[in-house]
Design a protein around this nucleic acid. Structure first.
Length: 294
DNA sequence: CTCCAGGAGATAT
DNA sequence: ATATCTCCTGGA
């Protein structure tokens, strides 16, 4: 097989890494991440760092294989997919025992995870996300990566980096269909490049400080800041509230009439320090219709 | 053709 | 503080 030239052999983690076919799919293409795509049923291709990686569901478990050219350890895969025992601990701390809504989410999406994505790329994707659907964000991202990023394998390109993005004019970005988001990317790029080490230092800050810093960027409001912190900064307490979650919370937790600060407060108190993980379960369960008959 | 998205920013109350 | 309007683009 020609592909053997590129790919190492498939491997899995033992004993059981808790995924299900559905939760694996939701984790990869459910909207927290935009650089994985399906190449066959239950078989996806994406990136972990600068390495091209494939993931599939086979024989009732998740399996991975990596591009041979780049040395990527199994530990790095495990870290990206949050396969360590901390995941089980986080699940255990969620209030599913006293929350029928959350319990239903966990039953139907056993293994759903928050991926540990790079902060710079995550910020870029979520600057594009305003009033855009998942396929649209993927498409714009792919165009930008192909045009300015390093080619890794076949049609897979790396995130160009903010240094490179800062050299692109707003009008050129508009020609790539970013619309009014072109200004967000162009202006944020200038700020990021002008402050050496600033973006990289964000994961070291407290959640509150990190969020305050991100909110300085044009195009970053409450929702985008929380997405970047949760998906790109490993801040599991971040609780992004988009229109879906907002409606879901009103409906499932009877919060009609509560303002957004009150809803954030409720989430923090009720879901605790892993609120972001709860948010992801709620979001996916709602998207897939698991909560309709409650 | 009109409407509105997994928002943010500006402006008006 | 809260409400409304606009901003690109594309799909319903």
């Amino acid at each position: 097989m020609k592909t053997e030239k590129f790919w190492g052999s498939w491997f899995a983690f033992k004993p059981d890494n808790l995924f299900s076919s559905l939760s694996l799919e939701e984790t990869l293409v459910g909207g927290q991440c935009f650089d994985w795509h399906e190449i066959a049923r239950f078989h996806w291709r994406g990136k972990v760092g600068k390495a091209v990686v494939e993931c599939r569901w086979k024989n009732e478990r998740a399996e991975w294989r990596c591009d041979k050219k780049i040395s990527l350890s199994e530990d790095q895969i495990a870290n990206y997919f949050w396969l360590d025992e901390d995941y089980g601990k986080a699940l255990n701390e969620l209030p599913w025992r006293s929350d029928a809504v959350l319990k239903k989410c966990l039953e139907n999406l056993k293994g759903l995870r928050i991926l540990r994505q790079p902060l710079d790329q995550t910020l870029f994707f979520f600057l594009l996300s305003s009033a855009k659907s998942i396929p649209q964000i993927q498409a714009i991202g792919k165009t930008v990566f192909q045009k300015y990023g390093e080619r890794l394998l076949e049609d897979i390109y790396a995130f160009p980096g903010w240094e490179r993005l800062s050299e692109i004019s707003e009008s050129e970005l508009r020609s790539l269909k970013l619309g009014y988001r072109a200004k967000y990317v162009a202006k944020s790029a200038q700020i990021i490049v002008s402050r050496k080490g600033w973006l990289e230092s964000i994961p070291e800050l407290s959640y509150e400080k990190a969020k305050k810093e991100l909110l300085c960027l044009p195009g970053v409001g409450e929702k985008v800041a929380d997405c970047v912190l949760l998906f790109g900064g490993n801040f599991l307490e971040a609780f992004p509230i988009d229109t879906w979650i907002e409606k879901s919370m009103e409906k499932r937790y009877c919060l009609h009439g509560w303002n957004s600060n009150q809803k954030i407060h409720f989430a923090r108190i009720h879901f605790g320090k892993f609120a972001g993980l709860a948010q992801q379960f709620l979001f996916s369960a709602e998207r897939l219709g698991f909560l309709e008959d409650l």
